[in-house]
Amino acid sequence: MQNLNDWLNAHGDYLYRFALARLRDPHHAEDAVQETMLAAIKSDNFDGDSSARTWLTGILKHKIIDIQRKRLREQAVSDLVDLDASDTSMDDFFDKSGHWLEKPQILEMPDNALEQKQFLGVLGKCLDKLPAKLSALFLMRDVQEIDNENICKELNITPTNAWVMLYRARMGLRKCLEMNWITG
């Protein structure tokens, strides 16, 4: 167990930030680090060639996906089923002939550190407002940059479900930013 102490002291903060940047939820990030430590203690395949941090981060990446998968499974099945009715859900954004009901606004991008921080704060709030299943998938795709094929495999969803969910997440996010950030 000495290893465990050493790992946590030397790399615990780093691993926690790594997980938090991808999961956004402090409790989920703590769980990811905890599961990583158990897996590391149980396995003895640390070869000493790579640094301990690199090795632990590799384990952590898998644990983060496990947690995201669990988040998606916790969603009611009925929530996922309605995703197939992909054409009715966008009525808020388009009229019957497929035109924008409201023309997308130009988002003013921050040009200094303070504005940047404010903008990311708004973006974070908008992300957290997405339904849990959408945000889990969206974080995997757009923050962790895992490719679609692997997302579908990991989460056991169809490519159709994946693109519909990502489309909805992006639509919701940009609308939320338009309402809460400066537009030109």
């Binding site: 930030r17 938090l20 903008f119 990311l120």
Partner: peptide, 27 residues
């Protein structure tokens, strides 16, 4: 719309990096 999605993508990467490098966040 396309520009918005690009801006969001860049901002998300920035947000991830800021969290990763923020020494004030500790376990």
């Amino acid at each position: 719309f396309r520009k918005q999605l690009k801006q969001i993508g860049i901002a998300l990467q920035r947000m991830r990096q800021l969290t990763e490098n923020d020494d004030s966040i500790t376990l």
